[in-house]
Amino acid sequence: MRFCLQSLFHKIHGLTVSEHQRADDLQLIQSGYRYAVSLSHNRHDAEDLIQQACLKVLRQQGTLVGKSYLFTAIRNLFYDSLRKRQGIVDEPLVDNLVADDTIPHTKLIEQKIDLEEILSCLRVEEREVLFLQIVEGYTAQEISTLTQQPRGTVLSLLSRARQRVQQRYDLDQILETK
């Protein structure tokens, strides 16, 4: 009886969604969540981000639209919250802002370095472009469009991120062999 009333309510308000659409939305939300994790590097923050972004997009568009739209919403929300928390403003990418690779070295040598710690050593921008390229399979041009950065900046970020991760990864392997 309750199911019948619920389905009737859904039919009246046009709330029936096909299973195919639901599966697509599920994939989209999971992708968005991973992107949020890559940005914030914190699961709880990522959960908040994906929920806020989904509600924002749904309120504005009525549907989740697409991956690019959702990613852009997540990105904007993340940087907004970051500005609110830290009071920072957008700053151009300069060499002295790149993560200092000397800080965690001694610490990392002493303990086992896992991937999460490796990724935490990267800057947000580096982690973001690395995620978009390796996990989502975006090209540098697509990443530059999504993040609204020049393609050269994206390539530079990618190069530095790869270099940094490779160094840490090699170091981790050396420690394991010892």
């Binding site: 709330l15 969604v17 939305d25 599920l26 929920q51 989904c54 749904l58 009525g62 549907t63």
Partner: peptide, 9 residues
């Protein structure tokens, strides 16, 4: 989130 989609639409 998935339940919110049809309501939003």
């Amino acid at each position: 989130l998935l339940d919110a989609v049809p309501f939003a639409a």
